[in-house]
Design a protein around this nucleic acid. Structure first.
Lengths: 180, 180
DNA sequence: CGCGACATGTAACGCGTTACATGATTGC
DNA sequence: GCAATCATGTAACGCGTTACATGTCGCG
């Protein structure tokens, strides 16, 4: 949809390498935007070819050369254009819910295990989000002001996960009680 | 990811046309699985070619002929295989959150409008979900038993939307208060 | 000695979006 | 007359996944 714009946002203030961007997707932004390293490197190449990014190579020994990308003026313009148009609603395709929906085709115990597995994953995720939140809340006023917007997105992750976990617990109860 | 399997689930019990499937994606299943009609027709063609679906044509006058698909034995097997393997975690790519994250690049009033717009959409959606829930809860015990699993997926939609709306209200307050 | 972090990619394929295309019937 | 519902598709393109591919450094 717009990996392009997510990349521009990340590079806007600082510039960075593909590797840096992938790391961001596994931390801050990663709560609500995902892309594999393959995808990121492809995209960087393309954005560079299209003139939205400029690339400086830092030669290194022992490691592959580091390619540091920075946003160009036309990149900044593309970002502004995107910010001005309304965001699309995210598309949800959740296989677990399809399985549940078709519950009678499957054994309840298999479903129970699956839900438990995802539950564990999301519970870990929530814990780490809450830890980041604590860090934010205990920071200086100035710091808090600076990280206010990213914090709002973190909050989204927290509420979303709490709702998911609440739901999952109800489902697990149903699956345990249920006939068969 | 597995439009294939979503289609098999929908056709498993009844058989149906591409049009029927698209309608399902706009109702029941649509809360957590989406696909355009173009995608659905392509997929049906492919599943038919691969022998997972069988197609009977009903000739009609005035309208295009109706193609009714039913799941074959190998289709049923493919479904069972999929049900047996663990579901992947859904991938989230939410442009609105990218915009918020990069809030300082944008005007707060633009962000405010965007959040308000999505809020309106999700509020409508929640209302319609709650209406469906009421219908379910006021049904006969036997009906409830039959629709239990789809109801659990509806519940997911309800909790998810409520969490989203709660979050959005906090964000709107912040965006209204905030400096600039 | 192996694992994880660092650092980059290619190729093939499959999934999803946008635009284009047709045409009857029913109800306001 | 216009919009919605019924009913189907093609073509081009762009986005995402999986598999393959390479090589160093530091830690335990």
């Amino acid at each position: 949809m717009s990996l392009k714009h997510a990349v521009l946002v990340l590079l806007e203030s600082e510039g960075g390498t593909g590797y840096d961007i992938v790391k961001s997707f596994n931390k801050g932004l990663g709560y609500f935007w995902n892309a594999s390293h393959q995808q990121v490197y492809q995209e960087l190449k393309k954005l560079n070819a299209d003139g939205l990014l400029q690339c400086d190579v830092e030669v290194q020994t022992g490691k592959p050369d580091k390619k540091v990308y920075v946003v160009t003026d036309s990149g900044r313009k593309a970002l502004q254009d995107w910010l001005a148009e309304p965001a699309k609603l995210p598309k949800i395709n959740d296989g677990l819910l399809v399985k549940l929906y078709a519950g009678n085709l499957n054994s309840l115990s298999t479903l129970h295990e699956e839900v438990l597995g995802q539950r564990a994953h999301y519970a870990d995720m929530l814990e780490s989000f809450l830890a980041v939140e604590q860090q934010y809340l205990s920071g200086e006023e100035e710091q808090r002001q600076q990280w206010k917007m990213p914090y709002l997105t973190l909050k989204r992750g927290i509420y979303g996960l709490q709702a998911w976990l609440k739901w999952a617990d109800e489902v697990l109860k149903e699956l345990a009680n249920g006939p068969v």
